[in-house]
Nucleic acid binder design. Sequence first.
DNA 1: CAGTATCCTTGGTGATACTG
DNA 2: CAGTATCACCAAGGATACTG
Lengths: 144, 144
Amino acid sequence: MIHNGPMAEEGTLTSGTHTDVREPIGEEHPICRLRDVLDRVGDKWSVLIMDLLGSGPQRYSELHRSIDGISQRMLTLTLRSLERDGLVDRTVTPTSPPRVDYALTPVGATLSDQVAALIRWADDHREYVARSRGRYDTARDGTP
Amino acid sequence: MIHNGPMAEEGTLTSGTHTDVREPIGEEHPICRLRDVLDRVGDKWSVLIMDLLGSGPQRYSELHRSIDGISQRMLTLTLRSLERDGLVDRTVTPTSPPRVDYALTPVGATLSDQVAALIRWADDHREYVARSRGRYDTARDGTP
DNA sequence: CAGTATCCTTGGTGATACTG
DNA sequence: CAGTATCACCAAGGATACTG
């Protein structure tokens, strides 16, 4: 049985104590530990940012301009949680106007590599997926 | 500039014509093509299912029992889109009661491998992330 | 068993405005 | 420049009930 729900609330991870309120679930599948990364990789913006930072540090405004359609709110929020997870470093240069640079941490870089692999997969199988969808949909539309 | 919005609606992929209504954006970053996979990997259930199927075909009811907390609705929906993308095969044995087996397609297996790599990453860096969060949070709570 | 149909909630997201 | 704060929305997802 894979437990998928929020098995570890912020407090559980934060507190330092790993007191599991629920039954032990780690033995059967490592998936339950995956949630964090998945949520990281899953949301729209994290991956974009991880990729962008993969080619070097970027300023807040550079990221904002580079990522079409992201709001300041989401950019900040995403960067914050990336920083919180130890995946990106935030460097403030208290000039005026202030300057803030974001860069991958060493660990963040390794995740960035995984993301890159995923991107490559997506690229390699882009057409396959498109054709699969085409076939699936026409099969449903064609013979109703 | 990375375009992230829904650049290709279902219809665009489905129709077979790749008439891009928007400006050409593929040159700058391959990210825009990634959305499909990301959405696949990103949502709660697809990854769980891909992993489960990685160890062999499973019946609907097996998946349902194996994945704690998933509703029939979401299980069906997720399996359908996985099938639509050509990542899993659905085999109906029209006995009574009916029996339906799900298995990874060859291509689905390769994505499953990527997912497995991600899982490994998550496992390897689980503690690191937890401690990063701990430090980040106590830094905020400790000095308010 | 393996779904489909329906209703309803919630939180992730965008838009907007303000600030050190 | 690099954020923070607030509001408002709506689609993803859960709960429940029904069916071939």
